[in-house]
């Protein structure tokens, strides 16, 4: 349960962004959570709601999209989505493939009301 801390870091970034845009009112934040990030989306939303209630972010809506694991083949450089933990390259059958995505926790956008 480290989602509360992650929610806090996320709000810090939104707050900085709001300041940068003349204290605009942030109404939505787009967040991408990789399936290998170790973050549970429901717990993150719960954390955000607990932190924003009765604050300037009361109306902030969290729009969370999940990102699947992506690997790159070390033999043929093919990039592919990993389904059901199967990390073998679907192009050439190579078993040594590298994680290139799906562990991200990032803010994609912030939406302000003007």
């Amino acid at each position: 349960m480290h989602e509360l801390g992650i929610a806090k870091s996320l709000l810090d970034i939104v707050r900085d962004e709001a300041r940068r845009h003349g204290q605009a009112r942030a109404v939505a934040v787009g967040v991408r959570i990789g399936e290998l990030s170790g973050v549970n989306s429901k717990a993150l939303i719960f954390g955000l709601e607990s932190l924003t209630k009765g604050t300037e972010f009361d109306a902030l809506e969290a729009r969370i999209e999940t990102a699947s694991q992506r690997n790159r083949c070390t033999a043929c450089n093919h990039e592919f989505l990993v389904v059901n933990h199967n990390t073998i390259c679907p192009e050439c059958g190579e078993s040594q493939t590298q994680l290139i995505g799906g562990d991200e926790i990032e803010i994609v956008y912030v939406e302000f009301e003007e």
Partner: peptide
């Protein structure tokens, strides 16, 4: 009017 600012910022960038 709503204005969307694209960020692509890591939440754990501090860490």
């Amino acid at each position: 009017m709503k204005k969307r600012i694209a960020l692509k910022q890591k939440v754990l960038e501090n860490n």
